[in-house]
Design a protein around this nucleic acid. Structure first.
Lengths: 249, 249
DNA sequence: TTAAAAAATGCAAAATAATGCAAACAATAA
DNA sequence: TTATTGTTTGCATTATTTTGCATTTTTTAA
């Protein structure tokens, strides 16, 4: 067995069981504990895991780097956005709002997609700057620090001049009666402008956003074309939404 | 058996078994291990596989995180930008260009600085979004992917309307005769606009940029107020620059 | 504090790799 | 044809890497 294989084995086991024990690995791989320890030290120095007394645990980034954006429930979000990939086509003009769900979406956009994408979210722009085939346009303005998006009149002005085929809009809250609602006023008006500017409006969010509301209205449910959650479209929770005419993906 | 055939054989086996072992291949193909090693080295340099001690494993391109920006010679750059911190004052309106030196600068800006900062660089904006006391304005436009900055007429238009106290401008190249010069045309005109918009112009760069030139002119040396390098201001290399009236920090 | 477990260190044997070199072979031009 | 040139291959030598063992040091838990 090659060393590289062993390292893979260790990393896989670590991922599955959240920890590895030196003695167990030595037994499982029929090698001396010294060798295992050396492996763990190597992987540790590569920051692929964290060596501890007796074995190793998963590596957790602690330096709160600005560039290290924490996405919680990333797997759930991947599930959501993967469904939405089918809505993408070459030649589209796309507007994307901010939010971690949209960031995950940006990560998964296939690299051969030829499209024009407008966004006002720094992390999403960083991510999309990796895509050789998308024309990326950043909508400038005053930065809202915590959300890492631009806001204000500058943004509205630019957005209102775009003629987009589709927009992907994050959601703070959604309910059948209130429609899309937002925590912040400024974000809510930017999203209104996005919806105005787009042929088709898609909103992606986790099911825990369903049937909640926030102070600032964005739009009625009827103005949304498609909503995407991690649930099965036929799920009972979504029935009311389906009835009101939104396409549930 | 031709070498090309052998390579195909190796790649097929690798695909099937996820790894290949040098000694096994030598036996199977009835060749010396040396030849197999040479084959593996070739395939490795073509990035078709990854050679490891004892054989080879499948090539996996390490998904270089977009958000992980590599800064080379960071210590040197820290030295440079630390000197420039003395140029910052509360209440200033500042424009910052892109570049890794400016990124390091952004990291070291004291968190109590109350200023308005304009930038058109994604990483710098990400970094500055950590500063609670700076008003941050991102200048939007079409993204230039590799440099992670916006370029084009949109940028020029916004920049030309700013009245800034000071601008910090990265440099591809600088020489006494040619002044500041840039690799890219688009970046050069944005920088021209920055200089026009600012009372004071500061350029920070490593000394290896001194006495080099690039195709696109940005400005004469006389248009710069201050230059900052890692060298001692009295260093002989900088004498010509001092003589021409630029303040060397 | 102490005893046991685990880890680090130095060392040597074995395996693997790199390097220089020469023979074998093919392709090409005189 | 012959000479020349370049590539490929195997061998000998040297260098590097890996691994296990003995020993010492550190850590853990009672």
């Amino acid at each position: 067995m090659l060393k590289a294989e062993r390292h893979k084995f260790i990393m896989t086991k670590l991922l599955e069981e959240h920890k590895v024990v030196t003695t167990d690995l030595a037994l499982a791989l029929d090698l001396s504990e010294d060798t295992i320890r050396r492996d763990l030290n190597e992987l540790d120095s590569k920051k692929l895991l964290e060596k501890v007394y007796g074995g190793a645990i998963k590596f957790v980034e602690k330096s709160s780097d600005v560039f290290q954006i924490a996405i919680n429930a990333e797997d759930e979000k991947k599930k959501i956005v993967t469904k939405a990939l089918s809505l993408l086509h070459d030649g589209q003009v796309i507007i994307m709002s901010g939010g971690s769900t949209n960031l995950v979406f940006a990560k998964l956009i296939p690299s051969d997609l030829k499209a024009t994408i407008y966004t006002y979210s720094l992390p999403i722009a960083m991510q999309l700057s990796q895509h050789p085939n998308v024309d990326l346009i950043f909508i400038g303005g005053k930065m809202q620090k915590n959300a890492m998006v631009t806001i204000g009149m500058d943004v509205i002005q630019v957005v209102s001049k775009i003629k987009a085929d589709i927009c992907f809009i994050g959601a703070s809250s959604i309910s059948v009666k209130q429609g899309l609602t937002e925590v912040g006023y400024e974000i809510s008006i930017v999203k209104k402008a996005m919806i105005e500017a787009s042929e088709k409006v898609v909103s992606m969010f986790s099911s825990n956003k369903l049937n909640t509301k926030m102070p600032h209205a964005v739009c009625d449910l009827s103005q949304l074309d498609t909503i995407v959650t991690e649930l099965d479209p036929q799920d009972a929770v979504l029935e009311e939404y389906r009835k009101s005419g939104v396409f549930v993906l």
